[in-house]
């Protein structure tokens, strides 16, 4: 089975104080550690397991500058046979539609049996690239897959819905799935593993290499344009309890008793 996985290298904002750049539209990335998008880690693991189970090949794709290659090296270390990074000077403002277009172009004439991506990205959270890419590739898809099983030329997937519900669907291959977290337990990727993977091919392609008209990418990129980033509205403005752990515990107990009525 020939597999393709699409990954993204994103900032880890978990503990970061995000600072908006002077253009008002970007986050100051130099403050942030980067990592492979969490959903993509699950997609990669699922792809690697499928490859291990069925044989065949695994190719990883990523849109991003050279610094983002870390995530591709990870893919190679986990078992991808080759990796393709697509980058062009005009890319930093790409919207999801343009990303999907560029990825589709990177796939080009090649045909894979199954395409996997993360259900969404941790940074912009659009959840758009997967189904868009499926449309461009002309294959059926299923989003938010949390279980995947190969059955004679088809795959049976469970999609995670709301409130404890799942939907089981069958996809004819070739197909694309977007993977929900928790579908598997992603393996650890060691530094030595990443170093060893350096011998595997990693191609870098520009728009010209892909035969894509920059204007088309520009047009797709302009479909959605980020105008501004801003801090979120204050919301409920929680009253912060301060002091030593013992003090805040005392205050919290008072709150639970007076406002919560549980003590």
């Amino acid at each position: 089975m020939n597999l393709a996985v699409f990954v993204k290298h994103v900032p880890d904002a978990a503990e970061a104080d995000l600072r908006i750049g002077p253009d008002g539209r970007s986050v100051r990335a130099e403050d942030l550690p980067f990592q492979m998008n969490e959903w993509d880690r699950f997609a990669l693991e699922e792809a690697a397991r499928l490859k291990e189970a069925t044989g065949g090949s695994l190719t990883a794709f990523l849109i991003g500058p050279g610094e983002h290659e870390d995530s591709l090296r990870r893919c190679l270390a986990v078992g991808a046979d080759r990796a393709v990074r697509v980058w062009d000077e005009s890319f930093p403002t790409l919207g999801p539609a343009a990303v999907a277009r560029a990825l589709a172009a990177a796939v080009g004439e090649e045909r894979f049996d199954l395409y996997l991506c993360g259900a969404q990205a941790a940074d912009d959270g659009y959840a758009v690239v997967g189904p868009t890419l499926a449309v461009l590739l002309g294959v059926p898809w299923a989003a938010l897959v949390c279980r995947l099983e190969l059955q004679d030329g088809r795959i049976v997937c469970d999609r995670e819905l709301e409130a404890g519900w799942f939907e089981r669907v069958e996809l004819a291959l070739p197909a694309l799935v977007t993977v929900q977290t928790g579908i598997n337990e992603p393996r650890y990727v060691s530094i030595l593993g990443i170093r060893k993977a350096r011998s595997k091919p990693l191609e870098v392609r520009g728009l010209a290499d892909l035969g894509v008209d920059p204007d088309e990418i520009g047009r797709l990129g302009a479909l959605t344009r980020l105008e501004a980033l801003e801090p979120p509205p204050p919301g409920r403005e929680a009253e912060m309890l301060e002091g030593s752990p013992a003090e805040v515990a005392r205050k919290a107990v008072a709150v639970l008793r007076e406002k919560g009525g549980v003590l």
Partner: peptide, 20 residues
């Protein structure tokens, strides 16, 4: 114009949809 959140809700984004 759409208002949405990014970075798991840590920031808010204003996104312009092209005329279409």
């Amino acid at each position: 114009l759409a208002v949405r959140t990014v970075y798991a809700g840590k920031l808010q984004a204003r996104v312009r949809l092209a005329q279409a």
